[in-house]
């Protein structure tokens, strides 16, 4: 059993969950995920790791409340216990000295990009973080992110903070901000990762995405997390979850992501993401 330390809503529909799991803390790296179950009847839910505290032995994730299982998670209170918290799973996000790196994040990814940016900066890169949401009140962790990068750039669909519009404005933003990234890393909902990959392709900038398919075990056992990358079948949990965004078959991925839509409590479109997947 694992003890919940913090569970709070950061912005509407997006929650922080911090759990005491010292074994996971010791091995956690940027890009990894955990698999947890809210209760004995619950599904195994994968959540990307957004932070960890080695001294306290805790691991933090940020999640979007969409269906039955995340609604259960959203009801957890400090000192509740959950039956499963396994990880860290997945390969680490590649951290090296690339030069200039632009991290793009939306939705829960604003949380999970944090350790990525931190490690990249520690590795001597010039790091920019671009965060994206429908409106200003859905952005979070700006101060935390400012601590691990040169500049945080915002983009909102209604223009209430930073640039107005969607990630498709990226080429123009890069010019206005005078950023020439050697690498781009995107975390967040599928739609953001797909759109970002589309606009960076003509720019010829290597774009890494942290894929978030349906999962069960997270150890390569069930194959539900499979996707096509560069024409080959890959299992996100053991071959990824980071892949080259220019090689992912996004159309197929989006369809697979929707397999259980009718079974899920229909996602509430409150978060303002163009897609919840």
């Amino acid at each position: 059993m694992y003890r919940v330390v913090v569970r709070r809503m950061i912005v509407p529909n997006i929650h922080e969950l911090t759990v005491a799991a010292p074994e996971v803390t010791n091995a956690a790296r940027p890009g990894n995920f955990v698999i947890l179950r809210p209760d004995e009847a619950g599904e195994r839910v994968p959540l990307t790791i957004a932070d960890w505290d080695a001294a306290a032995g805790t691991v933090t994730s940020v999640f979007l409340q969409v269906g039955a299982s995340t609604s259960k998670l959203a009801r957890l209170k400090p000192d509740d216990v959950i039956p499963t918290y396994a990880g860290p799973l997945g390969n680490d996000t590649e951290i090296a000295h690339f030069g200039t790196v632009l991290c793009i994040a939306g939705c829960y990814g604003i949380g999970s990009i944090y350790p990525v940016a931190r490690s990249l900066q520690e590795a001597g890169n010039t790091v920019y973080v671009l965060i994206e949401a429908r409106s200003r009140y859905l952005l979070y962790w700006q101060d935390k992110l400012r601590g691990v990068c040169t500049r945080v750039i915002e983009i909102t669909r209604d223009g209430s903070a930073g640039y107005k519009g969607h990630i498709t404005r990226l080429p123009e933003i890069l010019i206005l901000e005078k950023i020439k990234p050697d690498r781009i890393i995107v975390n967040g909902c599928t739609f953001l990762m797909m759109k970002a990959s589309e606009v960076t392709r003509p720019l010829g900038i290597k774009t890494i995405v942290n894929m978030n398919p349906i999962m069960i075990d997270g150890t390569g056992m069930c194959g539900v997390c499979r996707l096509t990358v560069g024409g080959k079948m890959k299992f996100a949990c053991v071959d990824g979850p980071d892949f080259d965004g220019h090689e992912v078959d996004w159309v197929e991925f989006l369809k697979r992501r929707q397999t259980y839509n009718p079974e899920e409590v229909q996602p509430l479109r409150r978060s303002g993401c163009a897609s919840h997947y």
Binding site: G223, M233, Q258, T259
Partner: peptide
């Protein structure tokens, strides 16, 4: 066509 929805590995089907 193996990544179509409705196609499972036996492990997935049985584990579920």
């Amino acid at each position: 066509g193996e990544n179509l929805n409705g196609v499972y590995s036996a492990n997935e089907y049985l584990t579920r």
